[in-house]
Design a binder for these strands. Structure first.
Lengths: 230, 230
DNA sequence: GCAAAAGTGTTCGTACTACACCCATGG
DNA sequence: CCATGGGTGTAGTACGAACACTTTTGC
């Protein structure tokens, strides 16, 4: 057989979280660390009879206790033949956004430690995982501007100021509070709840809620979400 | 070894071309057709010491005689475990846009026939290749609106009416000629040449040229390409 | 001179930008 | 009563949408 192939297939999970006005990624320290205990993205080899998407979700759950229903495929890393020094491994990377505030993470079967890392304080990771995260951040930034995915990073009910802050932080831009609020509200997929935020100081603020159904309706009618900045 | 993996890695190439006011895809009929001579996308198994991107470009060249320098990664298909009935194969799909008008395609080593198929006349293909093409078309449509990639489908020098037609055809929308021209020209990355088109009928038209350098300059200064429609 | 496509300008409305003051609460 | 964030309105501008007539050529 001329084309003998000995390439492994892995999946890696980039999970973004948002808290304390900062963007975080979920990282693990591998248990069987031939790589000298580097931190790494959750992930691992795909099983023989397992779809790729099931594989990421399983690995993520096994290693971090985070159980998701869906992850979006980001990119497949297979150009650097030596990205894993032991064997040739191609990795299909997936990403997801979660509300980090009430999520129980814990090191599980296959991981020693699990931890949220601020995206600007990520250490040198195993394999090409720094590169993968870079690509994920780029995608996140792009997507944030043309799909309402920011809400996935927030609790079900959130403050407008949190939303605003999230956009400013991730996109590294300044926003005019008034115009931002006006624009988002004009879309009509946010609902004001009757709840108020636990007050830190200043005037109490109403909590808002993203109505996914209404958003889907709008999409069906040709609506196009977009947040731009000066 | 608990995790024994016997999964092959393949690449597939979606090459779009544009001629006679229609969008085409490049397909081949496989030589060693265990699949009963279905048409399929050019592609094949990745070699052990070959990057993914080299693999697609090699396969495309071997099978169609089309030599490209770059293809963009589209998506990795590995959720359907039985997408190839013989073995489990995961395919990383890449796509590219070419000027089909002066491109010599020919069946080569690994293919019986090579042919351009209009995208609305594609037969039932091998594997999940119809699905892959669907995804590629969706990506193409999206990209066309926010990146100046339409020019890749046209000859170096082209008519404004061709460009306009290309957008109308691919996006299946109507455009106002005058507004379209005004907008594209306002960007400043098109150059009028001194050449005229071979006339079919009507007033002769000047040929235009896309200036990639100028476009890159604009991008550096925060420019953002966008074509929207009513 | 007629058919066929190329080339061009104006008006109107909408949507983004910029910008500043009052409000409700806790301490 | 002061500090802290929440909540709101308006005027100017720029850009996209709608729209029709003139020009150049071949036949």
């Amino acid at each position: 057989m001329e084309n003998f192939q000995n390439i492994r297939i892995a999946v890696d999970a980039i999970v973004f979280g948002y808290k304390n006005n900062s963007l975080y990624v979920l990282l693990i320290e591998q248990k069987f660390g031939s790589e000298d205990k580097y931190w790494a993205l959750p992930g691992g080899l795909v099983k023989q009879d397992e779809s790729l998407k099931d594989a990421v979700i399983r690995e993520l759950h096994e290693e971090t206790n985070v159980k998701l229903n869906f992850m979006e495929q980001l990119y497949t890393f297979g150009d650097d033949i030596y990205r894993d020094s032991r064997n040739r491994v191609i990795s299909v990377a997936y990403f997801a956004l979660v509300d980090a505030s009430n999520l129980e993470i814990k090191a599980d079967t296959d991981a020693d430690k699990v931890q949220w890392y601020k995206i600007d304080e990520i250490p040198a990771l195993a394999f090409d995982h720094n590169l993968i995260i870079e690509k994920a951040i780029a995608r996140l930034k792009a997507k944030l501007t043309y799909e309402p995915i920011g809400f996935d990073l927030l609790p079900e009910e959130f403050l407008f100021s949190d939303l605003e802050n999230l956009y400013c932080t991730i996109l590294e831009k300044e926003i005019d509070r008034r115009n931002f609020r006006k624009k988002i509200l004009s879309y009509g997929f946010l609902e004001q709840t009757e709840h108020f935020s636990p007050i830190k100081s200043g005037r109490p603020a109403k909590l808002f809620k993203f109505n996914g159904l209404k958003y889907n309706d709008l999409i069906k009618n040709g609506f196009h979400f977009e947040i731009k900045f000066a």
